[in-house]
Amino acid sequence: MNHSRREFIKNTTLVVAGAALMPDHLFADPKKIERLGVQLYTVRDAMKTDPSGTLKKLYDGGVRHVEHANYIDRKFYGYTAKEFKKLLADIDLQMPSGHTVMTAQDWDKAKGDFTDKWKYTIEDAATVGQKYVISPWLDESLRTDMDGLKYFMEQFNKCGELCKASGMKFGYHNHDFEFTTKIGDGNLYDYILANTEPLLVAQQLDIGNMFGLPGGVAIDIINKHPGRFELIHIKDEIKSATNGEMGHGYESTILGQGLLPVRETLKLARKKGGTSQFIIEQESYQGKDPVDCVKIDLQIMKNWGY
């Protein structure tokens, strides 16, 4: 996720002890429906100018599930929840998950309840057919404020209850700062996982965002926290001619053409990570058309058995 993606997020928002010794099959949930989808941030520019046409192109390219990254003023890409649900249905697409940032301000301390704004967010997610409401950011002011962070993790769990009441699950999506921010003997990501209830708060592990950083190896993270990753953002990474999407020298590319052991990571995620939602996201294209990249990535995933 590059600087513009970080700005996009900011602007639109104004451990299991002994688990590593358990048999891997215990982390697979046979009741979970496995889905392969695409994060629409991959085709962000096209979604700005022609949402309907872009979604149709994705469908024609083999996509059946999408994940949104645009919910502003109770609208998805300019459509109300009911309108966007109909648009998806007309194309025969489903949207099981979506990204909407939850902040500490979405909890009204005086009332001891979520704000109406956040309740509408959950209501609209349910209306459009989501199964997961994913928050993809953690405000900088909370990252080293231990009292504030602890309270915010309680808010995560409360949001899990709120989503559960509507037949959904709340979740969190990582970037890179979770691995560079140290807390005690671990890092911020360890803290988030240790202080959120797995039955209420799903984790969406982005396997590329933290690549190249200490502690940023997805295989190691899955082994360290087995069963915790219901959703995964699938990326491959190459050295960037610029500073890269996350600011540490790498950018995403076509799956299988980069430095990440993507296939091995996904195999472990499926076997040990508890993963059922596999979501492709590519943010850099090396001169290719983003929709064409989606088609190639999707075919590679299908060739790998997804």
Rank of each mutant, 00 (worst) to 15 (best):
K109L: 11
A81H: 03
T121C: 14
E123H: 03
T103F: 04
E123W: 02
T127N: 14
I91A: 08
K85D: 11
A110C: 03
A125L: 12
R74E: 11
Y79C: 13
G62K: 02
K119L: 15
G98P: 04
Q94K: 08
D90S: 06
T100D: 02
K85Y: 03
L88R: 01
I134W: 01
A89C: 01
H99V: 08
D139H: 07
Y59L: 13
G129R: 06
I134S: 01
L93W: 05
K82I: 07
W137F: 12
A110E: 15
V128A: 12
W107V: 14
G62T: 09
A81F: 08
T103N: 06
Y79W: 01
A81E: 05
H99Q: 10
E140L: 10
S141T: 10
Q130A: 07
T121I: 15
R64L: 13
K86P: 12
T115E: 05
H65T: 09
Y71A: 08
K119T: 15
A69G: 12
A81W: 03
A125H: 13
H65I: 08
F84W: 04
D113F: 00
E83W: 11
H99W: 08
V133K: 00
G61M: 02
T80R: 00
K111R: 11
D108C: 12
G61V: 07
I72Q: 05
A125M: 07
A126L: 07
D73C: 09
L142D: 06
L58S: 08
W137K: 00
T103Q: 05
V128M: 09
Y59D: 03
L87F: 08
K57G: 13
T100G: 01
Y120Q: 12
K75L: 00
I91M: 03
D124S: 04
S141Y: 12
K57M: 14
Y79S: 08
D92T: 14
I134M: 07
K119V: 13
T80E: 04
E67C: 07
A89I: 06
T103R: 10
M102G: 09
I91T: 10
L87P: 01
V66R: 01
K82Q: 12
Y59F: 15
H68W: 05
T80Q: 06
A126V: 10
A89G: 13
R74V: 09
G78R: 00
H65D: 14
E140F: 09
T103E: 10
G62D: 11
M102V: 11
G112C: 07
W107D: 07
W118S: 09
F84P: 02
D73K: 10
V63G: 09
A125F: 13
K111A: 15
T127Y: 02
K117A: 15
I91F: 00
F114E: 14
K131L: 06
A125Y: 06
Q130G: 05
Y132R: 07
K111V: 06
W107E: 10
I72W: 05
L93G: 11
P96S: 02
N70V: 12
W107F: 15
Y132V: 02
W118F: 14
Y120T: 15
Q94Y: 06
K75V: 05
K75Y: 03
I72G: 00
Y132N: 03
G62P: 10
K117P: 04
M102Y: 02
N70M: 03
